[in-house]
Simulated assay, not measured.
Amino acid sequence: MAFTAEQLAQNPSFVVSIRFLAGQMRGLFDAGPRLARLLASHQRWLLTQTAYALHLEYNPQDPTSGFTAVRLTGKITAHKVASRNTVLAFIEELFTYRFITHTPGDERRRPRHFEPAEVSHQAMFGWLHSNLGALDLIDGGNRAAFLRENPLLFRQIQPRVAYNCLEDGNWREPPEQVAMFLWTEAGGMVIDHFMSRLDLEGADLSRLAIGKVETRALAGDFMMSRTHLQRLLAKGAQRGCVGWYDEKKSQLWMSRDFLTEYVGWQAIKFAYVDEAFEWAKVQLESADA
């Protein structure tokens, strides 16, 4: 049985899984910074996951299927995630940096179909594998290993996760404090960085230590302006989400209230990942029976 979002949010081990995934996402960023930025804000996460899901549905016999500008725009604008112009600019960026290509033979056809480049396939598979590995930490499961042994399951799991997340307003619209970070450019990378360094053993009932944060170095690392990062941290401090232990603003903390809100929101996606994995596994076992 797959975990529900409520079960995950209430499980004391779940925050360790989130910290693990945050570390994995940092590794993805280090391996390919420009590609990793596609998942670095919530809007881009939704755009990327939806575009990939559309691609996996492509049927050469049906020209209306697959990843086209019209189909992605329709999905995204229907849920008010982004404007048509934003979607088209996003596709242009993917194409410019060769994260997607035209489907062979479609270069001059209408509608043009796009497909992910190999580096994009690897990154999305790595994202799913890391999420399953994070779930395994909770119950000692073998989801990640099972996916490695049955990689074709990925084609069933990813679209199911993407569409469930897109259609769930609680995931699509993060809680206010989380949204303050996640809807901003590179905000997702900042939160992942903080989560990966979180000291979960501290005795303070209201705060958890993140450790030393040098804004100039971190901003350069994430290819964002230092002013943008400082403004983001100042907003977070105003709301009590994060703050500094010292006047020099080097030692940072995160509030337990913010962590609880973030964990509850992440539980929604993780529950959809677990549900899609269990569903795909049953489909596979039924076909083998």
Rank of each mutant, 00 (worst) to 15 (best):
V213Q: 04
E185F: 11
W45D: 07
A209Q: 11
A69L: 02
S120M: 06
D136A: 05
N150I: 03
D246P: 05
P33L: 10
R84A: 15
I138N: 04
G32M: 10
I268S: 01
A5D: 02
E92G: 15
A287Y: 14
R160I: 00
Y163D: 15
N85M: 10
L21Q: 13
G32W: 03
T48L: 11
S83M: 03
R148K: 14
D274G: 03
V119P: 09
L182K: 02
L35W: 04
A134G: 05
L132M: 09
D221Y: 09
I268M: 02
L28M: 12
E261N: 13
G243M: 05
V161T: 04
A53P: 02
N164Y: 00
R84G: 13
Q158I: 02
L35R: 03
L182N: 00
R26I: 12
T184G: 03
L88K: 05
F270G: 03
F277R: 01
N164M: 05
Q238A: 14
A234W: 00
T77L: 01
R155M: 10
R109H: 12
G211N: 06
H79D: 07
L38D: 05
M1P: 10
A179V: 04
P116I: 13
A276M: 06
D30E: 15
G126L: 05
A276F: 03
K235A: 11
L21C: 11
G141P: 01
P159V: 07
E93S: 14
T215Y: 05
T227V: 12
D274S: 04
G32Y: 07
A5M: 01
T227P: 00
R110Q: 15
L233T: 02
Y97R: 15
K249D: 10
S120I: 02
R216H: 03
N164W: 00
L39Y: 10
F114L: 15
A267M: 06
L200G: 14
H121L: 09
A271V: 07
A69E: 07
L46W: 00
L56P: 11
W45Q: 09
Q43G: 04
T64M: 04
S13C: 09
G236A: 11
R256E: 15
N85S: 15
Q283T: 11
R148Q: 15
S17I: 03
R256H: 13
T68S: 08
R239V: 09
D168R: 02
L198V: 09
Q238L: 13
G220Y: 00
Q122C: 06
S17T: 03
P60L: 01
Y163W: 12
I138S: 05
